[in-house]
Amino acid sequence: MATSFIRKLVVSSLLFFSASVATAQTFVFTAIPDEDETKLVERFQGVADYLSEQLDVDVRYIPVKSYAAAITAFRNNQVQLAWFGGLSGVQARKLVPGSEALAQGVEDKAFETYFIANTSTGIEPADNLADLADELRGKTFTFGSKGSTSGRLMPEYHIREAFGEAPEDVFSRVGFSGNHTRTLRLVEAGTYQVGALNFQVWKKEMDDGNIDTDAVRVIWKTPPFPDYQWTIRGDVNDRFGDGFKEKVKQALLNLKDPKLLESFPRSGFIPVSNDAYEPIRKTAEEIGILD
């Protein structure tokens, strides 16, 4: 125990000093905190190592506590690249002229939100959200983060479509769990009766055997929409040399390490443009998140 403690102390002090010698030319990226932190750190430390090898510069990942913090760090040029959700990407690119969506996951072309319910509610799966209107009304409901696409924007849009009312008026209690994993845990535990989350998180947790299927089930799936993407600032070439942006893009598209892809979870990355996210922008404007 004691030696392990000393070892950790030495490692942490080394980390501390190595952090202070990092130069200004470190390429820094972040990601929206949409899942448990341990998973994010593991995943993006892998990406940082991979990019550092491919790009031949120091690459550093910094974890943040909120979607807005990721957008702000990107906008303030404290990070140059970010793994955004559909909505956070649109918000960030609106704030940083010249920034570009580089690549999205194969699955992000047609992403979905799953509405899930605790089985104690007795709600059965349906094809249309409107069919569940009577059963959903008056229940408690949780979104994910306030800035999430699949955890907030799309579910709120569909709730407004189906009920013609704001979520606060439909449900007896509306909460924001913080992220998708937590939405799953809260609905599974019955803290909230119904919730909405990212379908990839659901599938991955299901494959890993982390879902108690007697306690929680999917009751509705949204139509597909574009979601997560890597977005880069427009001024990276000035700072890291000509063609740097293209190099980053190629590195992301060439990411084939199955373990790393599995951690996202995505089967690979494909090119994408800013225009692909027009539907997200329109939806966000419609429900008043973007002005």
Binding site: S4, F16, A189
Partner: peptide, 30 residues
Amino acid sequence: ITSSNPWQDLGNFFLGVVTPNFFSSEGLMT
């Protein structure tokens, strides 16, 4: 109280406090 088994969670939490893990994260001392 909206969680379905709050006392069990509270119990788990106190169990965690009496079985602390000081070596979980390298960042803790920092």
